[in-house]
Amino acid sequence: MTRRDASRWHPAEYAFWALPIVAYFVFPDHLALLAQIAIAALFAVSLDLILGYAGIVSLGHAAFFGIGAYAAGLLAQAGWGDPVLGLACATLAAAVTGFATSFLVLRGADLTRLMVTLGVASMLYVLANKLTDITGGLDGLQGVEMKPIFGQFAFDLYGKTAYVYCTIILFVMFWIARRVVHSPFGLSLQGIRQNAVRMPALGTPVNARLVAVYTLGAAYAGIAGALLTQTTQFVSIDVFSFSRSAEVLLILVLGGIGSLYGGILGAVVFMTVHEYLSGIDPLYWQFWLGLLLIVVVLFARGGIMGTLRLASKVRA
């Protein structure tokens, strides 16, 4: 058996990344949805970094998504509508928030982490709700006007620019994340997830690693949030909501934890089904979503990626 170096790109991966280009031509009427898929995928990748690789469970990952969304929105509202500048500031704001709150998730079992992250996101929700003057409260942040990207590409009504913009950002961020998880740092995160007690005895500063990855995951989520603001030119308070945190967890679990691609596949399936079912009736959607979640937890713990891997093993 020859061993493949997992950090090298597999042919299937090239094929996978050709799909967004194909999609652009095949579904010209659905580019807005496709852009939303790319955003959800990036958000799921951000959670995968902290949950799938470092093993930190979170019920409040929307906190960073929301910080990014508001940062980009407020900046554009104040007249700095350059999208790339917005992304940079949103990333920074989310990273700082992530760094500051990372110290809360260092200690404690899963349950403590779940509740602490939930608590942090809830606090931000309440803050956004109360600071009506700044955030617009429940009405959302109005008057977000985006300038053309690099002064060249204006956001158009069909969502062409938005789609290309989101997909490129997704790809670049995915590529960076892929490097990170295959690096020695990524390996040590997996070590922490698999046996956090052993790691200090190897000389690993576990807390420093966790702070680093939590900050990185937060920055990623902030980018996803900023993209949502920039493509919809609006910020709703539910960027901080419990449902959003639960949804991204679900997308990741549906796709498969700990492979980066799982989050992307999960987002594609989730958003497509969402669009289709909520087109019929929003109520059905939530029902089937709940059922799907239960089925995945009980019968298909690996999600889509796990099932694919199993299938390829059976064939081999």
Binding site: L249, G290, I294
Partner: peptide
């Protein structure tokens, strides 16, 4: 948590 969130949604 995921399982019970599923129940909540349903």
């Amino acid at each position: 948590v995921l399982f019970s969130i599923g129940l909540v949604f349903m």
